[in-house]
C-alpha cells in the first residue's frame, strides 16, 4: 500500500537576528490511504511548521533546507508555484485552528463554499451553490439552505469549524491537514468535530494529518501517531501500541504527564524544558530532559528504526535495551 504522502528527512530553518533556528530537523513519516495520522508535540516541537512545509507555505525568513515530500509521485519541494497551485487547497487541503479568522466576514458562508466548487470543479454558480448546501449538510450544519445565506459572525465557533471543513472538502482532497481543529472549542463541540473528521475520512477516503497537543484527541481519532520533540521525530506507532507500550523516553514522559478525566492518576511532569532551537544539542535534542541519556546521545542523532511491528523509535538507549534483552 503506497503512501498518500511520504516525507523524507525534512529540515526547515528560520533565519533570525540571533541566528539560525532549525525548527524541523530531519523529520520522516508517511500518511497512508484512508488513515488519520496524529502529529503530536508541545509548542515549538515543529508540528505546525511541518504542516506548512507539506503545503510549501514556508515563507521567508524560513526555508526548507533539505528533504523531500513525495505526493502523487512528485517531490513537492521541486514544483513550481503554478504546479503547486493545482495541488494546494485542491488535492491537499487544510483546516486551521482559528476558523473565524480563516473565513471572510463579508461573504455569506454558502458563497464561500460555492466559490471553491466554481474554482476547483469549474461548475456554474447555480450548481456550485447547490453543491455548497449539500456539503454544509454533510458536515452537520442544521438548516443548511437558510444557514448558507448567513455570514460567519452568525455562526458559533464549532459551526465555523464545520464550514472550514466543508470548504476543505469541496475539492475532494486526498489529504486533509487539520492543525489543532478542536483547540478552543467546548468539549462537546470538539467531540462532534472529531466524530465528523473520523466519519469523513471513512466516507470520502481522504487521509487526514491531525496536528494536536492533546493525547485524548489522538486516542479518540487516530490510527497511527507520530511524536515530535524540538523539531525531531522521536516515535511513530499504531495508536494502541503508543499508549500501551510507548518506547521513547519523551513519549513515556508525555503519557504520564497528563491528568485524566476517566480515572485517578498520579501526574508526573516532564522534567526540564524544550531546548532552545537556536543552538540545539548536536545529537538527540531530548538529552537535557532524558533519564536514559548516554554519551553517544550528545554527539550523534539517533534515526528512526524499527522497534516492533510498524513501530519506529529514534533512541539509542531504547536500541541498547532491546539488544540487551
Amino acid at each position: 500500500m503506497s503512501a498518500v504522502i511520504a516525507v523524507e528527512d525534512l529540515a526547515v530553518r528560520f533565519s533570525t537576528d540571533h541566528g539560525e533556528v532549525e525548527a524541523v530537523d530531519g523529520a520522516s513519516f508517511d500518511v497512508r490511504p484512508g488513515e488519520i495520522l496524529g502529529l503530536v508535540g508541545e509548542s515549538g516541537s515543529g508540528k505546525s511548521v511541518t504542516a506548512m512545509a507539506l503545503l510549501q507555505l514556508i515563507r521567508k525568513p524560513g526555508r526548507i533546507v533539505r528533504g523531500e515530500i513525495v505526493f502523487d509521485g512528485r517531490d513537492l519541494c521541486r514544483l513550481s508555484e503554478e504546479e503547486l497551485a493545482s495541488i494546494r487547497g485542491a488535492k491537499i487541503a487544510m483546516v486551521f485552528q482559528t476558523p473565524r479568522t480563516a473565513l471572510n466576514p463579508l461573504i455569506t458562508v454558502g458563497e464561500q463554499v460555492a466559490r471553491l466548487y466554481a474554482l476547483h470543479g469549474g461548475l456554474s454558480s447555480a450548481v456550485s451553490r447547490r453543491r455548497a448546501v449539500d456539503m454544509l449538510r454533510l458536515v452537520g450544519i442544521p438548516e443548511p439552505e437558510r444557514r448558507s445565506r448567513q455570514y460567519p459572525h452568525q455562526f458559533s465557533g464549532g459551526m465555523c469549524q464545520r464550514v472550514m471543513i466543508a470548504m476543505a472538502l469541496a475539492s475532494a482532497p486526498r489529504l486533509l491537514i487539520a492543525d489543532e481543529p478542536t483547540t478552543g472549542l467546548d468539549v462537546s463541540t470538539a467531540a462532534r468535530i472529531l466524530d465528523l473528521l473520523r466519519d469523513l475520512g471513512r466516507d470520502t477516503g481522504a487521509s487526514i494529518l491531525l496536528i494536536t497537543h492533546d493525547l485524548g484527541v489522538v486516542a479518540a481519532t487516530c490510527q497511527r501517531v507520530a511524536v515530535m520533540h524540538a523539531g525531531q521525530m522521536v516515535e511513530i506507532a499504531p495508536v494502541r501500541a503508543l499508549f500501551a507500550r510507548p518506547a521513547h523516553p519523551y513519549t513515556r514522559a508525555l503519557v504520564r504527564s497528563i491528568p485524566r478525566a476517566d480515572r485517578e492518576v498520579t501526574m508526573e511532569p516532564i522534567p526540564g524544558a524544550v531546548p532552545s532551537l537556536l543552538e540545539p544539542p548536536p545529537g538527540c535534542r531530548y538529552v537535557g530532559r532524558c533519564p536514559w541519556v548516554e554519551d553517544r546521545c550528545r554527539r550523534e542523532k539517533p534515526s528512526l528504526s524499527e522497534h516492533a511491528a510498524d513501530h519506529l523509535v529514534a533512541c539509542f538507549a531504547v536500541e541498547d535495551r532491546r539488544a540487551a534483552v
Binding site: V187, S188, A190, A191, L194, D214, L215, G216, V217, V218, A219, A220, T221, V239, R240, F243, V255, I258, R260, A261, D262
Partner: peptide, 16 residues
Amino acid sequence: RALLAAVPVPDPDAKR
C-alpha cells in the same frame, strides 16, 4: 453525563 462522555481520554480502547 454528556459532558463526561465528550471528553477524549488518552486510551484508544476506552468505551465511550
